[in-house]
Design a protein around this nucleic acid. Structure first.
Lengths: 341, 341
DNA sequence: TGATACTATTAAAACGATTTAATTGAACGT
DNA sequence: ACGTTCAATTAAATCGTTTTAATAGTATCA
């Protein structure tokens, strides 16, 4: 059995106490008709005395609107995603919106549940952060009249607005930085490229190599097929295996890693194998996690401004509410150079 | 303007299509009256064809119940809290409950907003994770008939059930471990002790000193008054200042830190000052963050099992739903010894 | 056969708000 | 004094469900 909520004062109660009709109370609350100063005051007083809090469900039901936004996120324990959630909730909160944070843990069943919930609760807008390639359920949402906004991800679907990061310049900057530091080869290490931003980064990596006089070498590209590398542990295991299977001279001198968590794991594996960073290997991560500036060596990384992302998302939402058509947005990233390269 | 949700099929539509009354549809959906197999089938078919999804708000309003739990958390970007949220959402999800994750960022205004939202949405149960000392708003919630459950925190208030970690044994183990490793003094570094678990830890620290033949020294206790140290940056700055202001011999040889984030920041400051861990200083953290095992040196820390915490919280919720009175629960912690001491 | 019981279905009243159209009373101009 | 306008208020419909009491029809039993 679910829990029955204690009865609270309703408009009816307030109306009775103030000696007016229910409609008047509503009008006072929403300033939706002219009410004389004195009745207005009387109603307010009654609300105060009864500790009245409006019932959002009743209101939403009647109005067929609500102030709730669904935020679909792969995983809250990933600090990058948590940061986005945190920043976005901040903004929404200031605007009297509530955010339902929905971690789907990359699980299809969870996704299904989550979406069903959104429908049941008549959530009108969903923001999908990152996530795997599957676009079927996005279409499902749109078909149901739910507005879908993509963050840190892009789509060819019409009716879907996206706010993503520009993945080319920063990666090229990184390659160029590695060249300046004197590394003779640069590798690319990533989870499977079924995300648009990873695909972009891989292209940028290739172009960066060319622009900086590096040769592209197939065997310097490490794309894990089985693992989700967006996780310290998996990064550690993957790099450990690499160091055991290959001789140092067969590995690139520097790595571009697809996330800071991955890079952090690599750092540990490298250190355990007796190598040094940035001496033996250079590492560049991606995300600029809170921790990345405070480990030793400090991690050189590509920063994505979560605050900016959130603000941009909010703009999209507002524009949409006002009925304006919104263009996709691309935000720039920034290379932060620390000690790991 | 908020967004108006696209019209969806309602029970009325389903009823019309199946040629029955609205009540019948409801009964089919909830098996709340005996309906003949054929009408039942007809109704189901109609639902299918119309893509019917029940309107949770209407239902909740009528039933005066809902399946939503509010989870108040200080800060999502703190990996420890994120882990708790993540684990709890997992369990709730399996039980068809929805969780509203509410990060209040230690801000009073946010807290107020958050609570108002909970009331508006008639949320019946609130879990408060950690958080500062202020108990006024807890009483406010209880007065309103909301069930409050405390996680990783304790209270003397009646009508509040808590699930917390046992903070004595693990801390004592840590002190004893530091003794075995040969450290001659152990300090305590923490944010202000206005949380029950921090108070417990401080007592345990003192008892641990005594039990292991250490002398308690006032000047080895560092309780930051201004800062919230639950954050890498602040830990870094605090330790940096300590190292600049004091001579090494005036500092303890080992530190018990109140969180891993704090410890991580300290590690960096120590390393920058040219000292080594565990050589010059021993460090023990608290939380066992994902990253803690993968930095160098690996951080010795006290692990709190977030999964266990969540499962226990769920038990409390279920028992409460069944009308049973529940006792406070205390979960054990475990010292994980790595290289930092 | 008539009373009884059960099965299947429904009409209608909630739930707590918003909103529209109607009503009342006072003020105004002529 | 009478029509007109305006300000303040309200009655009633509505949103999409659940739930109760009532109804009709059918089977059971003595």
């Amino acid at each position: 059995m679910a829990r029955r909520v204690k009865d609270r004062a309703t408009m009816k109660d307030v109306a009775a106490r103030a000696g007016v009709s229910i409609g008047t109370v509503s009008h006072v609350l929403n300033r939706t008709a002219s009410i004389s100063a004195e009745t207005s005051e009387r109603v307010r007083q009654a609300m105060e005395e009864l500790n009245y809090v409006p019932n959002a469900m009743a209101r939403n039901m009647r109005m067929k609107t609500n102030h709730v936004i669904g935020l679909l996120i792969p995983n809250l324990t990933n600090n990058f995603h948590a940061k986005i959630a945190s920043e976005f909730v901040n903004i929404a909160d200031q605007n009297k919106y509530e955010v339902h944070i929905l971690g789907y843990e990359y699980s299809l069943e969870r996704e299904k549940n989550v979406i069903y919930n959104l429908l049941e609760y008549s959530v009108g807008t969903v923001i999908i952060v990152n996530g795997w390639g599957d676009e079927r359920y996005i279409q499902e949402l749109i078909k149901r009249g739910i507005r879908v906004i993509l963050a840190d991800r892009r789509s060819d679907l019409s009716d879907v607005v996206s706010v993503e990061f520009e993945n080319y310049q920063a990666i090229k900057d990184a390659v160029s930085c590695l060249r300046k530091k004197g590394y003779h080869s640069v590798g690319f290490i990533s989870e499977p490229l079924n995300l648009t931003n990873l695909q972009d980064r891989f292209k940028a990596y290739q172009e960066g190599l060319a622009e900086n006089g590096y040769e592209f070498r197939e065997n310097h590209v490490f794309i894990s097929q089985q693992l989700c590398l967006d996780n310290v542990k998996n990064g550690y295991l993957y790099m450990k295996q690499l160091l055991r299977m290959k001789r140092k001279e067969d590995l690139p001198e520097a790595f571009l890693a697809s996330s800071d968590l991955l890079a952090l794991g690599m750092l540990r594996a490298i250190s355990e194998a007796g190598y040094r960073v940035p001496g033996d290997f250079g590492i560049v991560g991606c995300d600029n996690l809170q921790i990345s500036g405070y480990i030793s060596p400090g991690l050189t990384t590509i920063m994505q401004d979560c605050g900016e992302l959130s603000r941009e998302l909010w703009k999209v939402i507002q524009a949409g509410n006002d009925g304006k058509r919104v263009e996709n947005t691309v935000l720039s990233q920034k290379l932060i150079i620390r000690e790991s390269c």
